[in-house]
Amino acid sequence: MKKKILIVEDDSLISTIFRMFLKELGYDLLGIVEDGKEAIRLCEKLGPDIILMDVHLGGELDGIQTTELIKSKFDIPVIFLSSDTEESTIQRVINTHSYGYLVKPIDKKELGISIELAFYKHQFDLDQKMREKRFRNFITDSPEAIVLVNEGGHIEYLNCLGLKLFKTAYIEDLMGLPLLSFVGDDYQNEFRDKLERSVEMGKGIDYTHIKFKTIHGDHIDVGLTGAHIEFNGKNNLQLIIRDVTQEFAYREMLAEKADIINHFHDGVVTFDLNGMVKSWNKGCERIFGIEEKEMVGKPYSDLSLSGREKSFTEDILIPTEKDNNYEIELSFEIDGKETLLRLYSSMLRNDAGIDKGIVCYVREV
């Protein structure tokens, strides 16, 4: 299909020459207009593929002003035509992000090459905008906080969950600021090294835990990963960030509880459903005379029960499944002596209520 061209030129001699050139080059000339307002009207009516625009048009709008309006309304590529090479004019043209600037007089071959380059560059730009639009939609709809950081380490973009992470509703509070300014002091050097290595080697960032600061200075624990992407035509590091503050607080609480349990005078032992020892506190070490490293990963049957075969299923599992607060007295051979122990057992279940193991509280009788 022939590319459709609109000429905006108030010099009839030059426009006649361009008409001849375009016909010989095989383009479809939609029309020739002499002022900016008429050019805008024809853009809306005819939808040209390329506009050849004289810089110094007569009338209310010059060529540069007309181009700015056309770009904002229709996004049609414009090639400027002028004999003006003044720096001030060139700078105004640059600011319009036009697709070419041809200095008069212009030959046919140069015109044809410029039209083809402008057309395909514009198609590439449209594809790029579509990809970025889809990517923005992906970021916006993501269930995770996403922050884009440029190669200088400054924030380029972030989604709504990213704003929520930093405790603000306004993207302007964060755009352009160095990400390191929101990293906790104790993590600054480590994270700076990760960012610099990522940029230098072109690789992402493996999962890492650091502390972030919100815009109010509050500290939060986060886990993040990073991957390089192209955004706004530039290389950026996409960080997927998750607030793990509650998770870390829960882990610390569990660690404190585990430490307390580990130092109980009485024994506390956990088994998986196959009877393998998963944990063994210091109380068990005292009662059985066996260290934790010797028992974890070993079966219940390794414990010496007096006078009979040892069966985790019969002794512990089945009774505890029937009664979640099961109590039993068993005789164990400890240091060559028969020792009577009382075991209190309960099921260990996950959040979905599925049995994962058994915990036994062990006390000497």
Rank of each mutant, 00 (worst) to 15 (best):
S142E: 06
I40E: 06
K104V: 09
R197T: 12
N236F: 06
V365S: 11
R349W: 03
E156S: 12
L340R: 10
I64C: 05
F21K: 00
F271G: 01
G223F: 01
S331A: 14
N232I: 11
G267V: 00
L6S: 00
S88W: 10
D186E: 15
N95Q: 15
T16L: 14
I261M: 10
Y344I: 08
F21A: 04
I90K: 08
G226F: 03
I50S: 03
D351W: 07
L239C: 10
Y101A: 07
V149T: 04
H263M: 09
K104Q: 11
I316G: 00
F80K: 01
D127S: 15
T168V: 06
T270L: 07
G26D: 07
F332V: 06
H216T: 14
I115K: 00
E292W: 00
K211A: 08
G283T: 00
R131P: 03
F80S: 01
K194E: 13
S306E: 12
E44G: 15
S142Y: 02
M347F: 05
T168D: 02
V147L: 10
S142A: 15
I113N: 08
L179Y: 05
E9L: 05
D186P: 03
G353C: 13
M295E: 01
K37I: 12
K108N: 07
T168I: 06
F288C: 04
V8K: 04
H265E: 09
S304T: 07
I290A: 02
K73W: 07
Y250Q: 15
K4H: 14
E292H: 04
I210S: 01
S72H: 13
F271V: 00
I328A: 01
N236E: 11
E132Y: 08
F124P: 01
C160P: 04
L254T: 12
Y170S: 14
K282H: 11
E200A: 15
R349K: 15
K164S: 14
H216I: 06
N159V: 05
I7N: 00
G31E: 08
E34I: 12
E321I: 12
I205Q: 03
G184N: 09
L25F: 07
E364Y: 04
K133H: 12
Q128R: 15
E86D: 15
Y187A: 06
D75F: 11
H263L: 13
Q246I: 12
C43M: 10
H56C: 10
D35W: 01
E60V: 09
H97T: 09
Q128L: 13
T168M: 03
Y170F: 14
P77R: 05
F138H: 09
K278R: 15
R308G: 02
V277G: 00
D173H: 12
A227G: 10
G152M: 11
Y120N: 08
E172K: 14
I14R: 00
S82N: 07
M175W: 11
D355M: 12
I14H: 02
S12A: 14
I240Q: 10
E338Y: 05
L57G: 02
I40M: 11
V149S: 01
R41S: 13
V268K: 00
L13F: 13
K104G: 08
G26R: 09
L61Y: 13
K108F: 05
R131C: 05
R342Y: 02
H216Y: 13
D335L: 09
K164F: 08
